[in-house]
């Protein structure tokens, strides 16, 4: 729309910082994500006024208040539904949904899956800390079974959702995972998510210092992360490990870890293909594995028409066939009679 604006005064990170004091707990993973988002927005070539951040309820959902963009802090679980209405109403907007594991997968589960299946162009960043933070520490739909929390003193009996698998099952067209503390990878993922035409789902592993501290520390600590995180790169063998000496091999339909060396070579390592949905399903199954590494990066991408463009197309087609709507013509369209 107003591209000239961005041409003359390039936007910077600061343009996206609002004057509101950020009130997450000191050390919360949300700070890192906020900063990452503010870093990539200026690069998108989108006028600032076209960004809309929508959130539900939860710690993460305070996010829009800290962005100097249009923002809507809605009600619990409904952010994707609200964002859907806004995007369909104005497809020019760059719409971002900030949500959490409770907001998106529990109370908002229905809206979440239906947004994905419609492929409305928006970016859903789900801050997954595997706990309810704002209500002070109950287990969430992504908490591991057996988790002891305020509402599960003897351990949670709920099997957790596997977010990427759920998103794939719902027909998602962009599915990725990022980690709050891994800025480099996160920035790349965010940029790809933003550019994807359709619903982009990014599961953000995020540490809750107060109620679930360290839940992802094995993925973020220097001494373990190289062996526990698998960075997915399109068309590249799935290698990991401190010396990049491990890889994933596919045996039947199961992955196994191999050590590169005398027995196995690079050709034995499975090559990632972000357009292969079956592969994405297999990768999502590693989510709760104790043995295999946790994939981070882009699981799956598919280009397919978005809902809102199809809405616009239908309107255009209807106008082509019926002519632009004329109220008087419509009112007179059937069974009228005139009284003199």
């Amino acid at each position: 729309m107003t591209d000239t604006n961005t041409m003359t005064t390039p936007l910077t990170r600061k343009d996206f910082v609002s004057n509101q004091e950020v009130r997450w707990c000191p050390g919360c993973g949300d700070y890192a994500i906020l900063s990452q988002v503010q870093k990539i927005l200026p690069k998108m070539g989108i006028p600032k006024e076209n960004f809309l951040f929508v959130s539900g309820i939860g710690c993460s959902s305070r996010f829009p208040y800290y962005m100097e963009t249009y923002g809507f802090h809605s009600i619990h679980g409904r952010a994707t539904a609200l964002a859907s209405g806004a995007k369909v109403a104005n497809p020019e907007l760059s719409v971002w949904v900030i949500t959490g594991d409770g907001d998106a997968m529990s109370i908002g589960g229905n809206h979440f899956i239906h947004t994905l299946r419609r492929n409305i162009d928006m970016n859903i960043l789900m801050f997954n800390n595997r706990i309810y933070g704002l209500t002070k520490g109950q287990y969430s739909p992504t908490s591991e079974i057996g988790k002891v929390t305020k509402s599960s003193p003897l351990g949670s009996l709920d099997y957790p959702f596997n977010p990427p698998a759920l998103a794939l099952g719902a027909g998602g067209t962009f599915i990725a995972r990022a980690i709050d503390r891994d800025q480099g990878a996160s920035l790349e993922i965010l940029e790809r998510a933003a550019k994807h035409k359709g619903t982009s789902f990014v599961e953000y592993y995020q540490n809750c210092l107060i109620f679930n501290d360290g839940v992802f520390s094995h993925l973020t600590e220097k001494n373990t992360k190289d062996d526990t995180v698998l960075h997915l790169v399109h068309n590249q063998p799935m290698r990991f490990g401190k010396d990049n000496n491990k890889g994933l091999r596919l045996v039947g339909s199961q992955f196994e870890v191999i050590e590169l060396g005398s027995k196995f070579g690079i050709n034995d390592v499975f090559v990632h293909n972000e357009n292969d949905k079956n592969l994405a399903m297999l990768l999502s199954e590693l989510t709760y594995s104790d043995v295999l590494p946790t994939p981070v990066g882009i699981f799956y991408v598919k280009d397919t028409p978005t809902y809102e463009t199809m809405v616009e197309d239908q309107i255009e087609r209807a106008i082509k066939i019926k002519g632009k709507g004329d109220l008087n013509k419509l009112f007179n369209s059937s069974g009228t009679w005139v009284v003199e």
Binding site: R78, L82, S84, V88
Partner: peptide
């Protein structure tokens, strides 16, 4: 639709009104 009407058949009643709020 030729009146530029956008109808959004939502997944439930809540999404119906919430999408309208959006």
């Amino acid at each position: 639709k030729h009146f530029n009407v956008k109808t959004f058949q939502a997944e439930d009643e809540i999404a119906g009104v919430v999408s309208a709020i959006g």
